[in-house]
């Protein structure tokens, strides 16, 4: 599996989901913010997919089983709290991962150095909303908790080592990834992620979900092209026009 494809698909798919919010956001400022995040992610996806091949061929002509994104990012938007829960889990992960990539001298260091600034903003946006929804009203508290609970089982997959993610972000002794050829210490990454997410969740007066974080089916499945049912429908919508005009340029 190409690491560019894995990271690119994460960004592409989450960007698409956020794009679905356009015209539906709870307040105008969030129309701007969600579109802004979606655009950042789409920009990252284009750079990453271009490393792996032709961006449009990869986005529009692969079928479901060939996509390498996390199952987390393909989850439907749900209500605003579900979207924010997804943003929290993913943006903290992406921020920590890109920080490590940016600090190294691997293939993705330059790209990550640029993206990490955007991702820091995404993370801040998600954290601020988790606080507001968690510590807002009774209704928002319960919706936020339900968002965190519903998406929890997709978070184990985040720490499945991505092969070929070459980086000198951590020194050799720190590497405990199972694939053996990565500079990312996935256990350490998971620990940092858990620490950061716990901190926000507790400050928001919420409870970290206790269910299995990496249920047998979900763990690592997206990275292997095994997706959840809503994903196929998302791709059908995303790809139909492009596929209807083979060979056309736009």
């Amino acid at each position: 599996m190409s690491a560019a494809l894995a990271l690119g698909d994460d960004a592409l798919v989450l960007s698409h989901r956020l794009g679905e919010w356009a015209g539906h956001a709870p307040v105008l400022e969030e129309e701007v913010a969600l579109a802004n995040i979606a655009l950042d992610l789409l920009g990252q996806a284009r750079v990453l997919l271009s490393l792996a091949g032709d961006e449009d061929e990869l986005a529009y002509l692969r079928e479901e089983r060939a996509f390498r994104n996390l199952q987390l990012v393909e989850q439907p938007n749900g209500d605003f709290a579900h979207t924010i829960a997804r943003q929290l889990y993913f943006s903290v992960y992406q921020h920590l991962l890109y920080e490590r990539l940016a600090a190294g001298d691997g293939e993705f260091a330059g790209l990550a150095a640029k993206a990490v600034k955007e991702v820091a903003y995404h993370r801040d946006h998600a954290e601020q909303w988790v606080l507001r929804l968690g510590d807002g009203t009774e209704e928002s508290h319960s919706r936020m908790q339900s968002g965190l609970d519903a998406l929890w089982r997709f978070t184990g997959e985040l720490f499945q080592p991505i092969e070929d993610l070459d980086s000198a972000a951590t020194n050799a002794t720190g590497s405990s990834g199972s694939s053996g050829n990565t500079g990312i210490d996935w256990q350490e990454l998971q620990g940092s992620w858990l620490h950061a997410v716990t901190d926000v969740v507790e400050r928001a007066t919420l409870t970290l979900p206790t269910g299995p974080q990496s249920g047998g089916w979900a763990a690592g499945a997206g990275r292997q092209g095994l997706h959840t049912e809503p994903f196929g429908r998302m791709l059908a919508e995303m790809q139909h026009l492009h596929r209807s005009h083979p060979g056309a340029s736009w």
Partner: peptide, 19 residues
């Protein structure tokens, strides 16, 4: 049309415009 834009470049342009 954001979710159906036929190329990633056009999709980015359209998202930016709606924003």
């Amino acid at each position: 049309w954001i979710t159906r834009a036929p190329s990633l470049r056009r999709k980015a342009i359209l998202m930016a415009k709606v924003q």
